[in-house]
Design a protein around this nucleic acid. Structure first.
Lengths: 343, 343
DNA sequence: AATTAGCACTCTCCTCATGAGAGTGCTAAA
DNA sequence: TTTAGCACTCTCATGAGGAGAGTGCTAATT
């Protein structure tokens, strides 16, 4: 069923009212506060139709209405008006970012900003590294046949891994190896996924030169077996969920808490919806995750030097101020992209 | 007032009973379950005295008794009997640790083990680095006057920091610098706190040799300005708090949640009680933190190669199985010390 | 002198009834 | 097509009443 203009207006009013009060919205309130020049009876009738079509629901027969997931979805896709951040807020965000010069701290600040600005939970997925250009590689001997490998990418991301080798390798040899690889890296842009192949190819030559390096093959293979898909998650503002009346019920709180506890679930959900559009909204049951059934997630992707790198997210009750969440998510992801690109 | 033997027995019984049932303990239950060969009236009288002396309290006049913080404290200091882990549990712990070869993963596994074994929240404070011997230092150019410094200590801890320099430094120079410092480090054991002084002293010589390196002084100063005191915190099992009936009330939940949200508060509390004894128990209001008023924290320190390095903790309701918590904390911290010393 | 039986008393918790209030659905009139 | 009017439904707060748990006190017993 196609919604007519009046139904859209009423749905918008219900969503707005419910978002601000967290109380079921009655026909009288709509008539009184939203000046639609309609009687409560008419509004009631329209609400009845909206309910029949699953945009609204009632907790019990004689209560006001609450938007359903479908209702929010329609609102988000068709009704909501973008809400830009105030210049003052933008300045404050930039100000806070200016305090940080380090990658790790920037990630933390981002999650804090998200939670403070939205009163919800702020999530940041650290950048994935695999499509970055490798800029420098260093091998540092830790003794006991263990070697620390540090990879630096052009985006300034640093990735480290300790690898085990079958025999002791002297510092001189490690240095030789680092220098050799770095000189190769300087010649052309190589990303991590094809670094290994290149190295193997190049190493053939050395191995024929110098038999002593014939264990390097295996060693490098292990080195590049880093699980790039598991990017780190930064969460902030868990306590904010307690501010929302919907989580006064212990059962609902339980769901969202287990989501917060298992950062991986949240990260996987965000990752699942990556691509296609920069900013996405996942409402309640749309995610199919029972833990998310009372929550919505607004995500926005950020990039480093133009390449997609990671995503940020805002997690809160389905009853959230979507226009504001979207504008915050978009502004923060833009700023984060800028900052990380400068690193 | 000195407690007599019978009062101690009754206090122990009340603590044990309350820990298992989470219900106020009546005199009848004690008489029935703990075979003290005393009538309920006698037990009631002793409980009355225990209450008068602040070891027990009643939620209301005609209910059973619950231990106070003071009651738990007395139990923990004088009454509880150590409870060693079963061989089977120990084997399982070792088995799980065997899966991890990496530092970061070991920290995570430790916090998971703590939370799974205790049904409470597991906390791990990463090792502090400042009294470690510096084994290797590497400078990696990131371009744009930024240099990544990686410090590896003898305990296998890795610490990285990006520093800004006033002018571009070529890779050759950085290499020269790394090699020079590393050769010095190899000569004797130097920890981070005195590394800087030594370097400055040694650098005097080079600077007189080679004027080009005269900006290195400032550069190193910045490099060693890392905030070593802020060690990372690993938390696991937040959701476990929901399993305890005491946190069914939203207000109490609020307190512990804010503790979980601000990992720093928790870390600071653990740090505050470090030293003196390996394992410590902080009960309820003893911490003076309002967020901790319904919680207890059992902490145990671990070491790396014999040097104190960090601590683990178990956070749960004051109504926790202290003997078991202590034995788990001690066993895990011992294992962690072993594993980290091998790295 | 210590212990215990007995009992009145207190407080919680559950259930049920009651009534006010909010908001609806329906119908007939405008 | 819209609206006024009204009966109806459901929630929520309040209070009464009774069962049950457990205590504190006292007098009797060991």
């Amino acid at each position: 069923m196609e919604l007519n203009e009046r139904m859209k207006t009423i749905l918008t009013a219900v969503v707005h009212r419910y978002i601000t009060t967290a109380e079921p919205v009655s026909s009288a309130i709509i008539a009184q506060k939203y000046h639609l020049n309609l009687s409560t009876a008419t509004i009631r009738h329209e609400m009845y139709l909206l309910e029949k079509n699953d945009y609204l629901w009632q907790p019990h027969t004689s209560s006001g209405r609450i938007p359903t997931d479908k209702g929010y979805r329609f609102y988000v896709d068709n009704l909501m008006v973008k809400n830009y951040l105030k210049e003052k807020e933008k300045r404050e965000i930039i100000q806070i970012y200016r305090q940080s010069k380090e990658f790790e701290e920037t990630m933390k600040i981002t999650s804090q900003l998200l939670s403070k600005l939205t009163n919800n939970i702020g999530v940041v997925l650290a950048p994935v590294i695999y499509n970055n250009v490798v800029k420098n590689i260093q091998f540092i001997s830790l003794g006991n046949n263990r070697i620390l490998t540090v990879i630096v990418t052009d985006a300034g991301l640093i990735c480290q891994k300790v690898i085990n080798v079958s025999g002791e390798i002297g510092k001189d040899r490690l240095n030789y190896l680092s220098n050799f690889i770095n000189s190769k890296l300087a010649e052309k842009d190589i990303n991590i996924t094809n670094l290994n192949n290149m190295l193997l190819e190049e190493l053939e030559k050395i191995i024929s030169f110098q038999e002593r390096f014939n264990y390097i093959h295996k060693f490098l293979e292990e080195c590049f077996d880093i699980k790039y898909s598991e990017n780190k998650v930064y969460l902030d503002g868990r306590i904010n969920i307690m501010k929302h009346p919907e989580f006064k019920e212990i059962d609902k709180l339980n769901y969202i808490l287990s989501l917060i506890d298992e950062e991986n679930i949240l990260a996987a959900t965000i990752r699942k919806y990556l691509g296609f559009r920069k900013t996405k909204i996942i409402i309640g049951k749309e995610s199919k995750l029972k833990e998310m059934q009372n929550c919505s997630l607004v995500t926005s992707e950020y990039s480093i030097k133009g390449k997609p790198a990671g995503a940020i997210g805002i997690l809160g009750p389905t009853r959230m101020d979507y226009p504001r969440m979207v504008s915050i998510a978009e502004y923060i992801s833009d700023k984060l992209s800028e900052i990380l690109s400068e690193f």
